[in-house]
Design a protein around this nucleic acid. Structure first.
Length: 467
RNA sequence: GGCGACGUAGCCAAGUUGGUUAAGGCAGAGGUCUGCAAAACCUCGAUCGCGGGUUCGAGUCCCGCCGUCGCCUCCA
């Protein structure tokens, strides 16, 4: 089975092949760390985590690099206002971001470079661009000469004139030869701005050059996948292409993958607009798996509208997936019922891969997981157990794992309460034997109010925390 | 204004290189099970934004229109 991937560069789904057999070089644009991450950032990270996990599932070694932009105007502004050191402020947000990623079960990238640690490579690249005539120095700044790059605009399908006309109105930048040119290096203008020595004086990198430098340093001149949010297509990725390809004379990336935006109240979730839900806030109320299901239940390229309703739906869908992992009640391990279950597991595995092979159709894949859940639950009702049941559940666990879902019980780790809950269940069981229904129901109702859900079955009473 | 994406049942959503009965989830209805409930299982819902066109045949291709969103400035 072969993987097909939608490439923003060609606007088509293409057969996926790698530069080097068995190895995927993937670079994903990470956050500018001037503030706490919101779930839009988390959504992007989850999507590329899913892509990475699936590529690994298919047997690839994935070299995954994600940057942290820790030198930037907004960070400098924020630090200035709060009286902090910019790099320290960034460091704090990087630490928190990584905690969030771990909490969301996102695999750590192979490398997470930062601008402040990539200065040498950046300076080398800028110097090279100047030497090749693609860039020029102007009073300590260095700009990229956009007109010199013939295929500028090929990713965003934009004409240079358009970039210029809107640009010119805002910045009548006299330092540039042309309004369309963008900064590779910015001269230091105030003492509180972080700055490094360079051939053009003290200064700091422009926004786009960091990614070009990091890609080259960690993955080489050409990579397989370059990803990020679709809001980065222009100007960021366009400019990365311009810099890298002009400098290296090689294509920057073979496949460009962009995720859609998370929307809140009809608008893109964004720090600058101020409509956002932070990762902390989300995780305070829901397990990480709920957000995964929410994100992966929709196609990665489509915008995703976020509201309480879809969160509730995702939480219920998670419950349903988990129901497939409950233990068997019988021990029937041969016969048509058992065979049926094994066939369902094989089919789920096949269809899961077919869906994922089609441009990472995680929503379709999730649907096939639900089919498997129903088959498992049905088999349980028919008394299937033993080896076949265990194998079907293992398939479910494995495929869910490829999507990064843990499906673990959200036992709120309030283990202190467990003995008391068990005790109450014991008492209630006695009451039920004596047909003291009113007492038994009161215990069940009161526990439910505390978030403990009881379920009676032939084999006894089980309980779990409510999501 | 320019570039791009999207519009499938009450809600979320897959399917769009045209072709048997348009996945799956949530909510809802009925049923099995249960002391009752929950969970699980079984059954039930859409002709695919609107209007044309191409075709033996279109949700799936083409044209037009309407609507939503993104980018064009920092942004996952």
């Amino acid at each position: 089975m072969s993987l097909r991937v939608y490439n923003t560069l060609t606007r088509k789904k293409e057969e996926f092949t790698t530069l080097e057999p068995g190895v995927v070089r993937m670079y994903v644009c990470g956050p500018t760390v001037y503030d706490e991450a919101h779930i839009g950032h988390a959504m992007s990270a989850i999507i590329f985590d899913m892509i990475r996990r699936y590529l690994e599932f298919k047997g690839y070694e994935v070299r995954h690099v994600m940057n942290f932009t820790d030198v930037d105007d907004k960070i400098i502004d924020r630090a200035q206002r709060t009286g902090q050191d910019p790099l320290q402020l960034a460091q704090g947000h990087i630490d928190r971001f990584q905690e969030h990623m771990a909490a969301l079960n996102i695999l750590p990238p192979t490398h997470t470079p930062r601008v402040s640690q990539t200065i040498d490579e950046i300076i080398a690249m800028v110097s090279d661009l100047i030497a090749k005539g693609y860039a020029y120095e102007s009073e300590g700044d260095v700009y990229f000469r956009v007109r010199k790059d013939d295929d500028y605009g090929k990713l965003s399908r934009r004409k240079i004139e358009h970039a210029v006309s809107s640009d010119r109105q805002r910045f009548g930048d006299e330092l540039k030869e042309d309004a369309a040119d963008f900064a590779l290096w910015k001269a230091q203008k105030a003492p509180h701005e972080p700055a490094w020595p360079s051939p053009w004086g003290m200064g700091r990198p422009g926004w786009h050059i960091e990614c070009s430098a990091m890609v080259r340093q960690y993955l080489g001149p050409t990579i397989d996948i370059h990803g990020g949010g679709n809001d980065l297509i222009f100007p960021h990725h366009e400019n990365e292409i311009a810099q890298s390809e002009s400098c290296n004379a090689a294509p920057l990336a073979r496949y460009w993958i962009h995720n859609g935006m998370l929307q809140l109240r009809g608008e893109k979730m964004s720090k600058s607009i101020g409509n956002m839900v932070t990762v902390t806030e989300f995780l305070r109320h829901h397990p990480a798996d709920v957000f995964r299901i929410l994100v992966l239940g929709s196609h990665y390229r489509k915008p995703l509208a976020y509201d309480d309703e879809v969160v509730a739906q995702a939480a219920r869908a998670l419950d349903r997936l988990r129901s497939g992992l409950r233990p068997p009640t019988g021990a029937l391990s041969t016969g048509p019922e058992a065979e049926h279950l094994l066939a369902a597991a094989r089919q789920a595995r096949e269809r899961f891969q077919e869906a994922m092979d089609d441009d990472f159709n995680s929503a379709g894949a999730l649907g096939h997981l639900h089919d498997l859940v129903r088959a498992i639950n049905h088999a349980r009702d028919l008394g299937v157990g033993g080896e076949p049941f265990a194998r079907a559940q293992e398939t479910l666990r494995e495929l869910a794992g490829v999507l990064g879902l843990k499906l673990a019980d959200s036992t709120n780790a309030t283990s202190d309460a467990e003995p008391f809950i068990e005790l109450l269940i014991e008492v209630r069981t006695e009451m039920r034997k004596l047909k003291q229904w009113a007492v038994a129901d009161t215990i069940r109702d009161r526990l439910a109010e505390l978030g403990v859900v009881l379920e009676d079955s032939r084999s006894g009473t089980t309980w779990h925390w409510q999501n």
